[in-house]
């Protein structure tokens, strides 16, 4: 985990699709500072720009203008290879549909980010086992995704997201495909990770998920409409 006090900083980030009259702004000047160790939820109605923000934060897409800094490093005009390396070391993705590689075991899936980080075999296995244990999947290492329940698959995905000790965990509707018990399991793991000092960003449209975060950012029409802290007085 990073020593920098600010995990992510977005300044006047725009994302436009198309050109001229038909141009659409998915992000219309977003300013957002996420301190290290924060547990943040991003909410908003569909079309508010949540997905576009996720893609920019995840370095899967580049802003049309504005700047993004991750752990003090500006992410723009970088080579495809550099961006891949940032995704590998700074970002831990958790997707709504789990997105495990079906041909790999739970252990293999968790090892994958370390494979791309060129971590040695022994260390890889050790860290992957530790991560699986951390999400309560001890003993399921050799199971393939189709032999696991949805909740278990999502916990494998979380183990995969944390195993490279990224700057932040970026979860896109992580509980969207889960029943309430599995949702509770995953949210508890996020709280534990946050308790251990991890930066967690959850993009969701479920209020009960957002309610578990420290701070909630509400998006509307491509902008940050407002931001509030849970547990503090509601605005």
């Amino acid at each position: 985990m990073t020593v920098s006090r600010t995990a992510i900083e977005l300044r006047n980030v725009r994302r436009d699709y198309g050109k001229g009259d038909s141009a659409v702004s998915a992000l219309d000047g977003v300013d957002l500072v996420i301190p290290s160790g924060e547990y943040l939820a991003v909410v908003g109605p569909s079309g508010a720009g949540k997905s576009s923000l996720l893609n920019i934060l995840g370095c899967l897409d580049q802003p049309s203008s504005g700047t993004l800094e991750i752990a003090g490093q500006t992410v723009s005009n970088l080579s495809e290879r550099r961006v891949a390396s940032i995704r590998n070391s700074d970002i831990g993705f958790v997707f709504q549909s789990f997105n495990l590689i079906p041909s790999l075991t739970a252990l293999g899936n968790v090892e994958l980010p370390m494979v791309y980080a060129k971590v040695g075999h022994a260390e890889r296995q050790e860290r992957a086992l530790a991560a699986l244990k951390q999400v309560g999947l001890h003993g399921r290492e050799k199971h393939r995704p189709n032999q696991l329940s949805g909740g278990q698959q999502q916990r494998v995905a979380v183990a995969r997201a944390i195993v490279n000790r990224p700057t932040f965990i970026l979860a896109d509707e992580p509980t969207g495909n889960l029943d309430s018990r599995a949702t509770e399991d995953v949210l508890r793991i996020f709280e534990d990770l946050h308790g251990d000092g991890a930066t967690v960003i959850v993009i969701t449209h479920e209020e009960e998920v957002a309610a578990r975060a420290q701070r909630v950012v509400v998006m509307r029409d491509g902008r940050v409409e407002r931001s509030y802290r849970n547990g503090a007085a509601l605005p």
């Binding site: 995840g58 899967l60 495809e80 290879r81 891949a84 390396s85 940032i86 995704r87 590998n88 070391s89 970002i91 993705f93 997707f95 997105n99 495990l100 590689i101 079906p102 994958l112 980010p113 791309y116 980080a117 995969r160 490279n164």
Partner: peptide, 16 residues
């Protein structure tokens, strides 16, 4: 394609 997307998200470089 999906797997390729996931591998990219996990940090697979173009050469890998």
């Amino acid at each position: 394609i999906r797997e390729i997307g996931v591998r990219k998200a996990l940090g697979a470089g173009p050469i890998s």
